[in-house]
Simulated scan of single mutants.
Amino acid sequence: MQDFIYQVDTKILFGHDQLRNLSKEIKKYGNRVLICYGGGSIKKSGLYDKVIKELEENDIFYKELWDIEPNPRVESVKRGVEIVKKHSLNFILPVGGGSVIDCAKLVAAGAKVETDPWKIVIGEEIVKEALPIGAILTIAATGSEMDKASVITNVKTKQKLGWASKHVLPKFAIMNPEYTYTVPKYHTSAGVADIMSHTMENYFSLNDGCYMQDRMAEGILKTMIKYGPIAYNDPENYEARANIMWSNSWAINGLLGSGKSTAWSVHAMEHELSAYYDITHGIGLAILTPRWLKHVLNNETVEKIATFGKNVFEIEETSDKFEDANKAIDALYKFFKDEMHIPMTLQELDIDETHLRDMAKATIRHKNGPIKGFQTLQEEDVYEIYKMSL
């Protein structure tokens, strides 16, 4: 196990009645708030009215940034930064899922610089401070409420890139599983796939001696396999939504990857899909992951993939490790397709061969060279995985 430092300071307020604590938590850091949200689902669900009532009853000034996209655009960030500076706001409150929170993080950092916030994403501007953030989570998928990372899309340059800073780690997150009851089936499935992908990106590593982290990762994956289909078929099942929501945070808050060297191979490939075609992130991850595992299956990786099958899908061991590993990959594919009803080919998303080579080149370019993860991926490897996914 490698040396590491692990610290996550986000305060979690989990359960039915935590919104009553919102104003008290905000006032620890500020009293002039930018509320960030997406296409209006929080208004349909009634959550928006509850948040506004809580703020107004506690004399908290607020402005709003709405219509944040599912793959948040840098243009929305710029709108938010302009509002913050114009009204001297001092706290950022995203109400939504990972896209809204990711956008809010860059707004929080961008409000403290005088340059284009995109320069933060591409590393030309270093984040030295940011406005404080608190999150109200409405979709379990990205884990953005409890980590320091953010992913932003620049449509003009066809780039979807991740960046991170300790300064944008949310101060608190209100997590009420009931807020996820209205998430459509398609996005419930995408969220489960996203959580599983975060877990697997940390899990699939070699020779690191991280036994504890791997067993915890397997526990999260089994939780998704148990409760994902329940949430899909019974959207208001509190137990299912609660277990998925809590797994969402722990899949990506740094615990599973502590002591490891991980490259997040599948995310790098999916970011290009989303940049070119604006597809739902979790769906792209579900399509790519089984193909990636098939591509990297070899004498070095077979033991880990077979163990994944045994411990996560309870596949009975045989004397043939490659047979066991292939059964594990097939079980993952079958879970996504048959239990979570995810389209499992790119063609089903109207994606053809046109940009596969361009996306493969961009994947390697944005990683500054080969992806050195579970197995090293060159441009040709990425291209082959895309082709397998058609």
Rank of each mutant, 00 (worst) to 15 (best):
E114I: 13
C103T: 11
Y186L: 15
T345K: 10
W246A: 14
I83W: 02
A275G: 15
R241Q: 14
S99P: 01
L297C: 09
Y277G: 02
V168G: 04
L65A: 04
K24F: 11
I12L: 15
H198I: 01
F322E: 12
D194C: 04
F313W: 10
L19F: 00
K185T: 14
T318G: 09
T153C: 15
Y179T: 08
K85V: 06
S23R: 06
N237M: 05
E69S: 13
V155A: 14
K327Q: 01
G162I: 05
L93T: 10
G98A: 00
V266P: 05
I139K: 05
I5F: 13
F61G: 02
T153M: 08
D338G: 07
H281D: 12
L377P: 04
A104Y: 06
R365T: 12
V296T: 14
V95C: 03
I60C: 08
T10H: 08
E348Q: 13
F14R: 11
I122T: 15
K53I: 04
L19N: 12
P290E: 04
K53D: 14
E317N: 14
K44C: 07
D350P: 01
M216K: 06
K321L: 13
A164I: 10
L206W: 10
Y6M: 08
L377D: 06
L390F: 15
P370M: 04
V312E: 04
L47M: 06
I195V: 13
G110A: 01
E270N: 08
K158H: 13
S249E: 12
G369T: 02
E178Q: 12
S247V: 06
L346A: 05
E75A: 06
M196S: 07
S76Y: 15
I12H: 09
V151L: 03
S45T: 09
I220T: 06
G38Y: 09
E323C: 10
V77Q: 08
N368A: 01
C103Y: 11
H295W: 15
D49N: 10
R241G: 06
N233Q: 05
M388R: 15
L89H: 09
G254F: 05
L255Y: 07
E145C: 06
F335I: 11
E69D: 12
I120F: 06
N368Q: 09
I136M: 07
V302Q: 03
K294A: 03
Q7M: 10
E272I: 03
Q159R: 14
M200F: 03
L221S: 02
L255T: 10
S205V: 14
V382A: 11
I35A: 07
M1P: 07
N71V: 12
